[in-house]
Design a protein around this nucleic acid. Structure first.
Lengths: 229, 229
DNA sequence: TAGTGGTCTAGACCACGGC
DNA sequence: CCGTGGTCTAGACCACTAG
């Protein structure tokens, strides 16, 4: 025998794909499957749980396990450091801080972070370069009450993205990618034309107790976001 | 006691965040943790495995478990049916097939699918509408040898995206989002201006044995791709 | 080669929620 | 109510790999 959970998963997937288990249909319960396949229920559980997480199955107590009617698949996107993203392309990464100061918090940023107007924030604008050519430009607001040490971060040596990832790991957050025309300022930093179609990532991250940072990242034309499914 | 794996996970996360377990540092092995926390090793294993999958820990046999130096977080993006995507916005979805035929396979598409020039393919162009207004336009190539029934799919009643998801679940595939200027044809279908910044999704999916479909989906201006992390 | 995580087992109890 | 998945346990063996 020696059936592992991956074998059970493969067999279940085969039955789903061959329509032996049709979409929407209830499949045998864990105990029966374990008996049929000759392994422990825990092994079947592990396999079916993985398939449910991948979107192939829907499981509910008492109601049993069903094949997802329209398999909702989930793709994973790794959120790498910008530096790594550049190096993974085989290029050399560098960065330059454009400016760093503490202007009043604009209402849209304040709303995204959920902070009062008086909250202490630092704004840093940074240009990321790949082989010396503009890769992306970043407009970042950092909540100093959540990350007091950021005020002393040596941003000439380590970029803001990497400093924060290393020093202020976050709990959760949201990412929003959209296509937008480059603003005049984007165009100046990225050496492209105003109005060029560029990818803009807006990201807000939160720590256990308080918002950490809000960032708008404008990628130079030609950027691709790739996902595997 | 009654410590569950989620409790163990929470405790581990607390230690990571509090730097009790510093980045890059090796943490106690599973057996020791189980003894310390008063639960079975399997419970600790489940908790630490989940943290590793989420990017907080790096685990290797013999080398033990370490706190990830720069937590590489992964975000999940659900790949919904276009119809669902529209309905989730509270709008009414509809679609219209623009044309459907069997032209020769252009080299770029052929390369993406990894098919010979003679492979039987059907091309369908479709416009997706939200509340009657253009939402996205799709240029799809379907490998008929992998999905013979597609030739008879009633695409006036069910859109190509949904038909394929329901009738030809795929194994794996790639997604590629990029920002691009709308072509003249995109602009005509989407009622926007030529050159407007739009999001373009290129997706290729493969079945167990053969490529299934290659699709270019151009979203109307204003589309956002949102991810949670 | 020894220590670590990866996994399987058999059994048990529990929580949820259709019926 | 009671069947189902969710989880815990104690023990065991295995696979990998750093030292």
């Amino acid at each position: 025998m020696a059936l592992g959970w991956q074998d059970v998963q493969a067999e279940a997937l085969r039955r789903i794909r061959s329509r032996e288990w049709a979409p929407g249909e209830q499949i045998p319960n864990e105990a029966d499957l374990a008996r049929e396949l000759g392994c422990a229920r825990a092994t079947v559980n592990r396999a079916l749980r993985a398939l449910a997480e991948a979107g192939w199955l829907e499981r509910r107590r008492r109601a049993g396990t069903r094949v997802a009617p329209a398999p909702l698949r989930r793709a994973q996107v790794a959120i790498p450091l910008i530096r790594k993203e550049i190096e993974n392309r085989g290029q050399t990464a560098s960065h330059a801080v454009i400016d760093r100061n503490r202007p009043p918090l604009p209402p849209p940023i304040r709303a995204a972070l959920g902070l009062p107007a008086t909250a202490p924030v630092e704004r840093v604008r940074t240009l990321y370069l790949a082989d010396g050519r503009p890769f992306a430009c970043e407009d970042r607001w950092v909540h100093l009450a959540a990350v007091p040490d950021f005020a002393d971060a040596p941003l000439d040596r380590i970029d803001p993205n990497e400093w924060l990832v290393r020093n202020a790991p976050f709990d959760h957050g949201t990412l929003d990618y959209c296509a937008a025309p480059a603003t005049a300022e984007d165009a100046r930093h990225l050496s492209c034309e105003t109005g060029a179609a560029i990818m803009v990532l807006t990201r807000t991250t939160f720590g256990p107790a308080a918002p950490v940072t809000h960032v708008r990242l404008a990628y130079a034309p030609g950027y691709h976001l790739r996902l595997e499914i």
